[in-house]
């Protein structure tokens, strides 16, 4: 039961956004995906969730190729995602934002609302329930987006820069939430982040992309010791090896 990219390539005309990228996420595991701007991180998420068809290679879910499936089918198969921008349904309140995903997954409206309410409580944001989604503070918007992605109990959750623009404290709170999602719910998480420190503190396995290629993979020690990673980042952002 693994979500994986197998030798995936994506080309936009003559531009190769991804070349032979292979990575895998297991249930309950947190995998980090890092790399400089334009490295192809979001393209990976788009391919994994059906928003981008790979030009070559396969997307595998529990051993089955799902590369050609529409995005909403992949979501129903248990692969959820968040977006860099929150992309909440701004005309609806918070509960209905979650309920939308519930009905998208085939629940009746009332069942969807009950599940939504329980999830908001689990994430400690039950008070937001009847607030309009438009105009939520930034961190709340992020949390609601994560709650929405958790509707229906996905098996995998892909987080696209969830901590972007957050303070240290807010990022630490978010890290605790992600850890709970993996530990308590057994959901496999793929974490894309510019905050390398956050990724290294959470992920058991980190994949580094540069120019659409995997340039390094391994645990915290491997990434921090890697010359290739250092060069890709030109020393920026990367914490000193312990």
């Amino acid at each position: 039961m693994v979500l994986a990219l197998d030798q995936v390539g994506v080309a936009f005309g003559g531009f190769r956004a991804l070349s032979e990228v292979t990575l895998a996420v297991a249930p309950g595991q947190i995998v980090g995906l890092i790399g400089p701007n334009g490295a192809g991180k979001t393209t990976c998420v788009n391919v994994l969730t059906g928003f981008q068809r790979p030009t070559s290679g396969r997307v595998l879910l529990a051993g089955r190729a799902v590369s050609g499936l529409a995005a909403h089918r992949i979501r129903r198969a248990g692969v959820a995602r968040t977006f860099q921008a929150g992309r909440l349904f701004t005309g609806l309140d918070v509960l209905d934002n979650l309920a939308c995903t519930g009905v998208g997954l085939g629940l009746r409206r009332r069942e969807a609302e009950h599940q939504a309410s329980a999830l908001l409580a689990w994430l400690g944001i039950a008070t937001l329930e009847s607030r309009p989604a438009a105009g939520l503070p930034y961190t709340d918007e992020r949390r609601v987006a994560i709650a929405r992605a958790l509707m229906g109990g996905p098996r995998f959750l892909l987080l696209d820069e969830p901590a972007a623009g957050m303070s240290e404290t807010e990022a630490a709170d978010l890290a605790a939430v992600i850890r709970r999602i993996a530990l308590e719910r057994g959901i496999g998480c793929l974490l894309i982040e510019h905050n390398v420190g956050l990724v290294l503190s959470l992920a058991s396995d980190v994949v580094v992309l540069d120019g659409g290629r995997v340039i390094e993979r391994g645990d915290r020690a491997v990434i921090l010791g890697s010359q290739a990673v250092r060069e890709a980042y030109l020393g920026a952002n990367l914490p000193e090896a312990a």
Partner: peptide, 19 residues
């Protein structure tokens, strides 16, 4: 409700499993 979600944001609606 699902249709209004697609009106608000087609991409987020697809990511919510909405056909």
């Amino acid at each position: 409700l699902a249709l209004r979600a697609t009106r608000e944001d087609e991409v987020a609606a697809a990511a919510s499993g909405i056909d």
